[in-house]
Design a protein around this nucleic acid. Structure first.
Length: 185
DNA sequence: AATCGGATCGTCT
DNA sequence: GACGATCCGATTG
């Protein structure tokens, strides 16, 4: 399979978020391959999006969102969880990223079960904090280039889903009118 | 099925 | 010093 190149991410963030559905996220952990198909994403903008970490401009924490497309933006939230985003924006936008919310596990399920302390496959990667735990993703992965073969990358696939639904994003107090969450129906 | 609260800490004001 | 782009277990209906 072929890796998803940077040009894919250099488009409107919401379009990238939608088209990431069906792509395969691959993690190399302790020499083992963990992977899953992306089935839920959210798009986050910049000054046009009050719910975005980039809304008020660049800080140390959100710097990756202003960096190269196709790189990871990983942040720590609620004292317990990491969330994985992929930097994506059209050429004119200052910042933007796609939050990966849900994966359908494909490879390395045993190791995911160990990392998650559960054998229930449905609960392995059905949430942004869960999939990072399953794949062993943390702040060390912030900024890594997902368009190169390394410890984390995304493969193109022939997989397409006939039914995709756009919904409000989860957990926000603002911007509930934007339908920037994309789910495989 | 739906709701509630606790855990836990880096980041920004 | 307050607050999250969350998760889980417990409780209630």
């Amino acid at each position: 399979m072929k890796i998803l190149e940077a040009a894919f991410y250099l488009r409107d963030t919401a379009i990238v978020a939608r088209e990431l559905l069906g792509k395969q996220l691959v993690r190399i952990l302790d020499g083992k391959v963990l992977s899953g198909v992306i089935t839920e994403t959210e798009s986050y903008g910049h000054s046009n999006d009050q719910a975005s970490h980039a809304y008020k401009g660049q800080t140390l924490r959100n710097a990756a969102m202003f960096g190269s497309v196709g790189h990871a933006y990983v942040y720590f939230i609620y004292g317990n969880h990491f969330c994985l985003n992929i930097v994506a924006r059209d050429a004119l936008a200052p910042a933007g990223a796609v939050l990966i919310r849900t994966l359908q596990p494909v490879a390395g399920i045993e190791l995911m079960q160990q990392n998650r302390h559960t054998i229930d496959i449905k609960k392995l990667c059905n949430g942004p904090g869960k999939l990072t735990q399953a794949l062993g993703i943390n702040l060390l992965d912030n900024g890594v280039d997902l368009t190169r073969f390394g410890k984390l990358y995304v493969l193109d696939t022939e997989l397409t889903f006939p039914h995709i639904v756009a919904k409000p994003r989860i957990g926000l107090s603002q911007e509930k009118n934007k339908l920037w969450r994309f789910v495989v129906a």
